[in-house]
Design a protein around this nucleic acid. Structure first.
Lengths: 163, 163
DNA sequence: GGTGATTTTGATAACGATTTTCATTTTCAA
DNA sequence: TTGAAAATGAAAATCGTTATCAAAATCACC
């Protein structure tokens, strides 16, 4: 287990103790409070995506969530991911290998480091980059309103498994 | 015209004077020297992509290149883009609105600033970021081997046209 | 310049991922 | 418990991209 993964688990636990909700319960509650109904299909998808440390494609979500709720249909996975993205609970992650994976969104805007082998993804903070970004924008005549910073590499676990 | 666009034109002119080739001619020559034949279809695609300051989708390339060579087929555009990418003359650009646009590749690895309105794209240098990137990697247990840094905004021309 | 092997082409069909349609089932407020 | 509304899964439709194939274009050789 990486330090980052461990930290994210600790943070989740602290959050759980403070609020009394797991991430899964929090997401389900947000779905409900936004007028969406709670169904077994949605519970299965939410449990899969919220607990995953990896960016998952709709098909991967489908396969994993079906083990919790076998009647699940792939279309419902697409529809649920759409709603979770709309509520800003997940985000689409772009990778060299494709752009259809989804990952739990962290608080605040952060940057990503992703494993090329297994898709494990972790957020990191970029210190005072915004200043540099709008400087670059000015220099080129752009008004910057969004930025992507992603690092790709091999995580410790994948390096260990390969040797 | 932005400073960046102006600069890239100046750089291209300097390159032309030094080497005696336009970008278009240089690309065509590289296609040929890699065993590919020169055809009217390829000339039309190369002229379109090499001269564009914007990231263009295969369909956009098709539409623009067809005005030069009306017999052109969309499939040939895909095939030509594939070869240009293989020769590292162009790169696929990922955007919020989609991930199927292609842009002339600049010398050396650089970062991109892209207009959300019109797709205009320019490269910029990121000073000593590599150090920070591998630091982040180490902290999270990753061996970093690739990075993406892209800024999105509205270019000067689009801001002017809107007001 | 002509010739012919080889590459390239465009039209068509095939493909895979995603979205739409629709009748049935499920949810949840009353 | 009931019923209106939402959500579901299966099937069909759609979209961008890729494979197939016979015809056309390229270019090394004469």
């Amino acid at each position: 287990m990486t330090i980052g993964a461990l930290r994210s688990i600790i943070i989740e636990n602290v959050f759980q103790q403070a609020v009394g909700l797991s991430v899964v319960e929090s997401w389900l509650e947000q779905l409900q409070s936004n007028g969406y109904r709670l169904t077994n299909a949605r519970r299965a998808v939410v449990q899969t995506v919220a607990r995953s440390q990896r960016a998952l494609s709709p098909m991967q979500v489908f396969e994993q969530a079906r083990s919790r709720y076998p009647a699940l249909g792939l279309v419902t996975v697409y529809r649920t991911l759409e709603k979770l993205e709309e509520l800003k609970l997940i985000q689409r992650v772009h990778q060299l290998s494709g752009c259809n994976a989804y990952l739990a969104l962290a608080e605040g805007h952060q940057h990503l480091i992703i494993c090329l082998e297994c898709g494990r993804a972790e957020y990191f903070e970029g210190e005072q980059m915004e200043g540099f970004f709008s400087q670059v924008g000015e220099r080129h005549g752009y008004r910057v309103c969004e930025h992507w910073l992603q690092l790709f590499g091999i995580c410790r676990e994948c390096r260990t498994n390969e040797n």
